[in-house]
Amino acid sequence: MSGSFDFQYPWMLLLLPLALLPFFPVRRDVLAFAWLNLLPEDRLGRAMGFLWRLIGAAAIAAIVLALAGPGHPETQQLRVGRGAEILVLMDRSRSMDERMMPSDWRTLDPTVRLYHLSRGPQKARVARDVLAKFVAQRPNDRFSLMFFSTRPLNVVPFTQHDATIQAAITAGEVGRGIGDTDVGRAMLAAIDSFAPRTYSGSRIILLVSDGGTHLDDRTRERIREGLRRQRIALYWIYLRSYNAPSLDSDDPKLEAIGEVALHRFFKTLDTPYRNYQADSPEDIAQAVADVGRQQNLPLDYYERIPREDYSKHFLLAAALACVVLLGFRLMLLRSWE
């Protein structure tokens, strides 16, 4: 960190000469004495008197400096990270509040699978847990978090501060999901959030969703073009609901199902696309770990370091000085009686 230093309100420093006030011989708390030459020489007392004035001056000066708002100015710093810029685009729709199949569903008798559905964890919750772990494991990546349902909701812009992202992920618990799932608008918003950033490393959109929609041709074209221009890889963690179709079937009739249509569109993209179907919590974890393995490229970026305000240190110093002055005052001889 450089040693630069500036004031927010430099004109306040004009008040700094007020700190000389304690050295003026006009005081109300002095006691008159007939003839000071009569008294014995007291060097310790003189030193205390000087210290008293000095501390008074220091208190005033510290208050003035605090008013002037000293601080370390806002700077930008170049950081080099290994990893990717990952935008997590998370479905916040009502269907995400449903439960997943328990982890041992494959061994269960198909006739009672529906019954076991209530044992499974909520999809959104599992996704959040796994994402939280994922973020914690990858300190070098820059994350951004965006929720979407009927419309995209940008929660955290790109940052490397894990605590912020973790808090944002936790915040997803609040309330319940909303009705619709508009993947098209969410994708466009996600692509747009990359647009003002200089390309400094691999870029990923991590779509965590359990459903899809049919996109019109115009939207498809914009998504395809956007991904290509911004050079973004797309990873889709598909949280498969009970009774939902597998995405990889070749049956042309399944084109009517939104998820399958979306998957088929994504497969036609020029940019890398990968799909993970997750039926159970283990599958999600597996998918996320897979993403982590794949993107580990060096990344240069500027970080904005906000202005650091030092005025509270000065106020603390002033308060301490005032406490010392109070101590002096309590020691003061008030009258001759």
Binding site: P25, R27, D29, V30, L31, A32, F33, A34, W35, L36, L38, L39, D42, L44, G45, R46, M48, G49, F50, W52, F328, M331, L332, L333, W336
Partner: peptide
């Protein structure tokens, strides 16, 4: 007040009645 110093231990901020000079005396 001149012949008998105050009994309590304290700081006395004194001003000469004639010259106005100030002195601090630690009693």
């Amino acid at each position: 007040a001149e012949t008998r110093p105050p009994e309590e231990d304290s700081l006395a901020l004194l001003q000469d009645a004639e010259t106005g000079a100030q002195r601090t005396v630690w009693l």
